[in-house]
Structures are given as structure tokens and as C-alpha cells.
């Protein structure tokens, strides 16, 4: 109720159809995205808490910086 809830966790999600392996997500959010040897992302699977503000900011930069709009932030767990 008017309070930003920093509960719950998120994972980055990549749409493999859209991804063309630009590698921008890895540069913008190295703590969340590794790159395989072909340049495609290997997304960290463990959920990151929303309270980890720096990781969340990195994730937002990665989503915004993707030239193919292939990334999204997905909330996991914490369903009431």
C-alpha cells in the first residue's frame, strides 16, 4: 500500500528466438549473465532477491540494453 515491497526474487529470462548473441547483457549484468563460447547468454538460474538493488539495476540495464529486446525480468516464488 504505497510502499515499495522489496520482497521476493527475480531471474532474468531470455527469449532464445529473439537472442542474436550481441553480448550486451553480459557486459551490463556480468553478475547475472555469463556468455558461452558462441556469445549466447547463460543466465544465472538461482533467483536474486529484489532487495539486491545493484543486481536489480544491472538487470534493468541489461533488459534496456538488449538490441533484440530478448530479455525480461521475471518474478519467481513469493506467490501469496
Amino acid at each position: 500500500m504505497g510502499v515499495i515491497r522489496r520482497t521476493g526474487s527475480f531471474v532474468l529470462k531470455v527469449n532464445p528466438i529473439l537472442c542474436d548473441g550481441f553480448g550486451h547483457c553480459h557486459e551490463l549484468a556480468p553478475e547475472l549473465v555469463d556468455i558461452d563460447e558462441w556469445g549466447y547468454p547463460i543466465i544465472k538460474k538461482d533467483p536474486t532477491p529484489f532487495g539486491n538493488v545493484r543486481a536489480l539495476q544491472s538487470a534493468r540495464y541489461a533488459v534496456r540494453g538488449c538490441p533484440r529486446q530478448a530479455l525480461s525480468i521475471e518474478r519467481v516464488g513469493d506467490q501469496p
Partner: peptide
């Protein structure tokens, strides 16, 4: 399609995990 690993990030400079199958 893929331009390969970029050498910019701290992860790229770190040693690669020696487990390609798990990766």
C-alpha cells in the same frame, strides 16, 4: 550470429570453469 565472448567484463577476465559439459 553470435559475436563471441567479449573481453570487457570481470567474468571474462576470470578463469573459465573447466567443466564444458556442465556449462
Amino acid at each position: 550470429r553470435a559475436g563471441g565472448r567479449t573481453a570487457l567484463s570481470p567474468l571474462a577476465r576470470a578463469a573459465r570453469p573447466a567443466a564444458p559439459s556442465a556449462k
